[in-house]
Design a protein around this nucleic acid. Structure first.
Lengths: 146, 146
DNA sequence: TCTTGACCTGAAGTCAGGTTTAGGTTATAC
DNA sequence: GTATAACCTAAACCTGACTTCAGGTCAAGA
């Protein structure tokens, strides 16, 4: 059992944020002794999941929904699995999107490298988009496919 | 040359958002004729970069900084290259982080698949973290490395 | 016992990134 | 030439995710 201050240190999350999460219903079964929150392993695991889901851009109210399903017990196993399957697709798509963003950034790095060499963008602007050298053409194409 | 409405359709961005971007200084040299905004190829390319940088989580005010460098001309080529090199590192880190999140999600999918089969989490809780089967152990380890 | 630090609450404040509203101007089609 | 659709501004409003504040309680050590 941990106090809010200990959990705050463990996860490097402000105490105010933990209280906010509690207020928003992210710890459905959180115990208290004479008013003071007592975090068990259950809440620690919940917090790991919260951190994970927040990284995927999920909103607090949707994380709350998941925590409520956890509190409901074994009747929600399939709902919870489907929840993660949906999230999986979203994160996979996010990674694909980021890879394309990375191609765009790589292209821009190359672009400014050339501009530095040339002292201007004239030659570059004549190359784009059809006369790019092989070394960068693939990156450009991936970055600009919609 | 395009009107704000045409650009809105091209990019599927509300007109109000384009005006907001303009107010925040994201189109430094944007022309007007009798008060009406005239978007040129320059602003279209700017908007492509804005969309890209927004996907990396960059704030409007930092995107504005970049656009100002663009408006300054050839003296800022190296600054702009370095800007993209920094962003590249951040996005690469983001992708690595997302891959670990994906491992966590894969683990959770497996976990609930087992729980559905078993009808409870008892067997699972005895397995975690040291007696996991090989098929999932790697995923678990990657998901939990800090 | 008293003080000090960690805890508690509800309400207000903050910040980013827009969106909505109200009131007005301009361009285009009939 | 007049309707109406698309444009304009400033300012207020909204949402999510916190943070800060004011005022109060609780537990442990000197």
């Amino acid at each position: 059992m941990y106090t809010i201050g200990q959990v705050s240190e463990m996860f490097n999350i402000p105490v105010s944020t933990l209280r906010y999460y509690d207020k928003e219903g992210l710890f459905p079964g959180l115990e208290r002794s004479s008013g003071i929150r007592r975090f068990s392993e259950k809440e620690i695991e919940a917090l790991r999941i919260i951190e994970c889901l927040k990284k995927t851009g999920m909103e607090i109210k949707d994380i709350k929904q998941f925590m409520e399903w956890c509190a409901e017990g074994s009747s929600t196993y399939t709902v919870r699995r489907d929840f993660f399957l949906r999230r999986k697709k979203i994160v996979e798509e996010e990674i694909r999107k980021m890879s394309r963003v990375l191609d765009m950034i790589d292209f821009k790095c190359w672009y400014y490298e050339q501009a530095i060499k040339d002292g201007n963008e004239d030659r570059l602007n004549q190359m784009i988009p059809d006369n790019l050298p092989d070394e960068i053409k693939d990156v450009y194409d991936r970055a600009h496919e919609d």
